[in-house]
């Protein structure tokens, strides 16, 4: 009896083995959109520092079709990041009150409520409604 263990190769195919891995990769890809949008904002501050004409040109840049598509994708990915982040928060930060732990949905729910309030506050401040 000889031992000769067989090590199966690891390939990138794991991503497609189960929907949970695809959901994970989608969540991780949100970084490209959040990062990209943030860099766009840095570009915006450059325009803002250069005066009204540069700022107007930046707003025009925002209104190109490519920018609109990018914004819609960014909004979807950023919202997905928020949902996944708040859904996972109770795992990272469990709260024990007396003997019992607060149910996950209470902790997530509090975060979703705070998210809604912050979003409404920001949109109101920006004069979006």
């Amino acid at each position: 009896m000889s031992r000769r263990p067989y090590a199966r190769p690891i390939t990138s195919e794991w991503i497609f083995r189960h929907p949970r891995y695809i959901r994970y990769m989608v969540r991780e890809f949100s970084c490209l959109f959040i990062g990209g949008w943030t860099l766009l904002m840095v570009w915006g501050f450059k325009a803002l520092s250069e005066g009204p004409a540069a700022w107007a040109a930046f707003l025009e840049l925002l209104q190109t079709p490519a920018s609109i598509v990018f914004h819609l994708l960014t909004l979807a990915f950023a919202a997905y990041h928020s949902v996944t982040w708040f859904n996972l928060t109770p795992k990272a930060l469990p709260v024990q009150l007396g003997e019992e732990f607060l149910p996950d949905r209470v902790i997530s729910g509090a975060h979703f409520a705070a998210w809604a309030a912050v979003s409404a506050g920001l949109l109101y401040f920006a004069g979006a409604f």
Binding site: H18, R20, Y21, Y24, E28, L88, K91
Partner: peptide, 9 residues
Amino acid sequence: CSFVGACSE
């Protein structure tokens, strides 16, 4: 760990 979360599932 990159918090895939598969272990818990």
